Computed example of a mutant assay.
Amino acid sequence: MRRFFGARIGTCACLDAEGRPEYRSRMAFHAVLFDLDGTLLDTLADIAVSMNHALQSLGFPAHEVDSYRRRVGWGARVLAEKSLPEDHHDPDTVARCVQLFAEYYSLHPNDHTRPFEGIVQMLAALRTASVPCAVLSNKPHDLTVSVVAQSLEGHPFVAVYGDRSGVPPKPHPGTARDAARQLGHAEDEVLFVGDSDIDMQTAVAAGMEPVGVTWGFRTREVLHDAGARVIIDQPAQLLNLLEKTNGHQ
Rank of each mutant, 00 (worst) to 15 (best):
E81L: 11
M122A: 11
C97T: 09
E86C: 02
L107H: 08
P109R: 09
C133V: 15
V135W: 00
A134R: 00
D92R: 15
A124D: 08
S83W: 00
H108A: 08
L143W: 07
P85H: 14
V120W: 03
V148S: 03
H89W: 08
T93W: 11
L143R: 03
Q99H: 06
Y105H: 10
M122H: 14
L100Q: 01
A102N: 13
R114W: 12
P109Y: 15
L84K: 06
V145P: 09
A124T: 14
A134M: 12
P109I: 01
L100W: 04
V98I: 12
E103R: 03
L136V: 06
A102F: 09
T93C: 09
R127M: 06
L107N: 02
L84Q: 04
Y104T: 01
L126G: 15
C97M: 10
A95I: 11
V148K: 03
P132A: 05
T144K: 02
Q121M: 04
P85E: 13
Y105T: 00
P140F: 09
K82I: 11
I119S: 07
D142S: 10
P85C: 11
A102Q: 09
V98P: 07
K82A: 13
L123M: 06
S83T: 02
A95V: 04
V147P: 05
V148E: 04
A102L: 13
H108D: 07
L84H: 09
T93R: 01
A129I: 03
Q121K: 13
H108M: 11
A80M: 01
H108C: 11
L100K: 01
L79Y: 07
A124W: 15
L79V: 15
K82D: 12
H89S: 06
L143E: 15
A124K: 15
V135N: 00
P115D: 11
T113L: 12
V131R: 00
A80D: 03
Q99I: 10
L84S: 07
P91R: 06
P85L: 05
S146W: 01
N110W: 08
R77L: 13
V98Q: 02
V98Y: 01
E103T: 09
E103P: 12
S83E: 04
L79Q: 02
K139A: 02
S137Y: 00
P91I: 11
H108Q: 00
R127G: 08
E117V: 07
S83K: 02
L123P: 03
H88S: 14
I119K: 04
D92N: 10
V94E: 00
V78F: 06
P109W: 12
V131G: 05
Q121V: 04
V135G: 14
H88I: 06
D90V: 14
D142I: 03
R114Q: 04
L126W: 12
I119D: 05
L100S: 05
V78W: 05
L143Q: 08
E103N: 08
F116R: 04
A124P: 03
H112E: 13
A125Y: 08
I119V: 15
E103C: 06
A102C: 08
L123T: 10
P140D: 10
